[in-house]
């Protein structure tokens, strides 16, 4: 342990030296990250409270089961594990950049900062795809007025309730108005032969819908979308600002500012922020996707 290197009996609190053995900037970065941890913690605990207070919550394995270009394949956890590995990898390149900074190796810092920025951008792209997929997704759910409708996942709609039995679907179809039937039929005919759904009669639409492999569910707690988009959005904003900070640091490295200064402590501080973003993702991953 490095602490053993300190002389025994160092008087940390008697003035003249930092009791934390760190520069002002680094200590303040740590305090900022601690306060940010409380912000994220409060969000996640609030989410947990609401989730504990209802009987049925959306099953993450059903909500997050798609992968880009994989069509309708059921791949639970696959895409989010890719996102997790991207972030872990970019954390490693960041810590390698800090390491090169200690060795005053400008070329090395540049190389690893570029890799870290690429990792951050890749993560943001993944998140953009995931959000788009959920916001434009089409899932058939039973509305409170007893009709079936096609719903996306937004802050106002959650089609991820408990599954509806077949009899309940058949009964609900009878009271569903024409335009909703048409949009359900349009959702279901992906890949099959294309009908002009708007021109079909209600009876024909119901017959077509029942002959397709229809899955419908009750609507789930409305809070799901708000918490998911709110918390992953807040985390995504941290990733975005981290990428911006890393770009600034890369530019300053290239301009030789840190060589002039004689140390690369700024890279260390940016690194602390970037690792924190990875740390938060570990918990977001746990709370939204795993359990």
């Amino acid at each position: 342990m490095s602490t053993a290197a300190v002389q025994q009996g160092t008087k940390w609190w008697s003035g003249g030296r930092s009791p934390f053995n760190a520069s002002y900037g680094k200590v303040m970065m740590w305090y900022f990250l601690m306060s940010d941890a409380f912000t994220f913690g409060a969000f996640l605990i609030s989410y947990g409270t609401i989730r504990f207070s209802v009987n049925n919550w959306a099953d993450p394995n059903h909500v997050f089961n798609s992968f880009p270009f994989a069509g309708h394949m059921n791949l639970p956890l696959a895409f989010v594990s890719l996102m997790t590995f991207i972030l872990i990898a970019s954390s490693v390149t960041m810590v390698l950049a800090v390491h090169e900074g200690h060795n005053m190796n400008r070329k090395g810092v540049e190389k690893y900062m570029i890799l870290t920025i690429i990792g951050g951008l890749a993560f943001l792209s993944c998140q953009a795809w995931e959000w788009t997929h959920l916001l434009t997704g089409e899932h058939i759910a039973l509305l409170s007025d007893g009709t079936l409708s096609v719903l996306p996942t937004t802050v106002k709609a959650n089609p991820w309730g408990t599954a509806l039995p077949h009899e309940a679907i058949a009964a609900a179809l009878q009271t569903t108005p024409h335009d909703q039937l048409a949009s359900i039929a349009a959702t279901l005919q992906h890949g099959g032969e294309v009908h002009n759904v708007a021109a079909m009669s209600n009876a024909d639409l119901i017959k077509f819908i029942e002959s397709s492999d229809i899955h419908a569910s009750n609507t789930g707690p409305i809070a799901f979308g708000g918490y998911f988009f709110g918390i992953t959005g807040f985390h995504g904003f941290h990733v975005f600002s981290g990428v911006v900070i890393n770009i600034v640091m890369l530019t300053k490295t290239r301009l030789g500012h840190f060589d002039e200064r004689g140390h690369y402590e700024m890279i260390e501080k940016a690194g602390l922020y970037w690792h924190f973003v990875d740390l938060v993702w570990v918990f977001v991953f746990l709370c939204f996707y795993l359990i």
Binding site: T3, S18, S23, G262
Partner: peptide
Amino acid sequence: MAAHYSSPEITFHPE
């Protein structure tokens, strides 16, 4: 050869 931020406030540099 490692370079660090130095100031009289910093007592030692952790390895």
